[in-house]
């Protein structure tokens, strides 16, 4: 294409190369029907679109290629001494800290930790835990850099995210944020242990147990899906968005409308839509 030899002009627009390429060797202009002018008059774009006025007509194509997106202002530069934490100490006291465990599993006698959370001013010792060394930090949410000092030597954990500064020193990158795992398997170790079998007895509830009032029904459940109008097909009636508390509950009404049948109501959510079904079934005789 003709862009191969293009170079950028002083005003930032594409300047024509000395020999503009024409496809198929066609350098001449075809005459247009209707007797239109052979050369279009120069057209200038609206002033409010561009501050620098472009040339009146294009010399070459601006290729239709995706542009690299601009960095968001919130994105962090890879400099190691960058500290995202607000410098005022009040901020630390106000923000709830997030527990973060850092583990070193590559041996050593004395293992220390330093990081950008305090602008590299202090070192914390990692406690030995079996073969590993570990320390629990409580940090505000943010992105930090840290290094491990093992027996006086600066080290980093290659398996974890890391970055190098302009002097070539490598440090690990730590992203601290509130995180609720989607898979509950990953938090299995935090679950309470099951109750021991001997804590249960085989005592059957007596009359006094049954004499007690049953627990009260949550008031939201009293608004049954069995009440109200049913959508007649095509009428486009839109029911009120149901409360979450009624979802996937089964509502039963016997002898619906004085008839010997059963009405079962249930409300489901499917993606962002809610649908309540009222299923009418015959009562077993």
């Amino acid at each position: 294409m003709g862009n191969a030899s293009a170079k950028e002009g002083e005003n930032g627009h594409m300047a024509a190369s000395p020999e503009p390429a024409a496809p198929n060797g066609g350098g001449g202009s075809s005459s247009s029907a209707g007797g239109a002018a052979a050369r279009p008059p120069p057209l200038s774009p609206p002033d409010d679109v561009m501050l620098e006025r472009p040339p009146p007509v294009p010399y070459l194509f601006v290729p239709q290629v995706p542009e690299t997106p601009l960095h968001r202002p919130t994105e962090l530069s890879p400099l190691l001494n960058h500290s995202p934490v607000n410098e005022s100490t009040d901020h630390h006291s106000q923000e709830q800290g997030i527990p973060t465990l850092i583990t070193w599993s590559q041996g050593g006698d004395e293992v220390f930790l330093e990081g950008s959370w305090d602008n590299w001013t202090s070192r914390r010792a990692l406690e030995r835990s079996g073969k590993d060394h570990a320390v629990l930090l409580v940090l505000p949410s943010g992105v930090y850099h840290y290094r491990i000092i093992v027996d006086g030597e600066l080290r980093y954990i290659p398996e974890l995210p890391h970055a190098a500064d302009e002097r070539g020193r490598v440090a690990n990158v730590l992203d601290v944020h509130d995180y609720v795992p989607e898979s509950l398997d990953s938090v299995a170790e935090f679950e309470a242990p099951p109750s021991p079998v001997h804590s249960y007895d085989l005592h059957c509830p007596g009359d006094e147990e049954f004499a007690k009032e049953p627990p009260t029904l949550p008031p939201q459940l009293l608004v049954s899906v069995l009440g109200g109008d049913v959508d007649s097909a095509g009428h486009g009636n839109q029911a009120l968005k149901p409360q979450h508390v009624v979802l996937d509950h089964l509502f039963i009404e016997k002898g619906w409308g004085s008839q010997s049948l059963l009405a079962l109501g249930v409300t489901h959510r499917f993606e962002s839509k809610y649908v309540s079904f009222v299923l009418y079934k015959p009562l077993e005789r």
Partner: peptide, 27 residues
């Protein structure tokens, strides 16, 4: 619709009751 309510009839329901429900619910 964001939220809708639909009647569904069991195939074992007697025909007379089915038409009565359709009438009562305006279906």
């Amino acid at each position: 619709p964001l939220s809708s309510k639909l009647a569904v009839l069991d195939t074992q329901l007697p025909v007379k009751q089915a038409f009565k429900i359709m009438h009562d619910e305006g279906l």
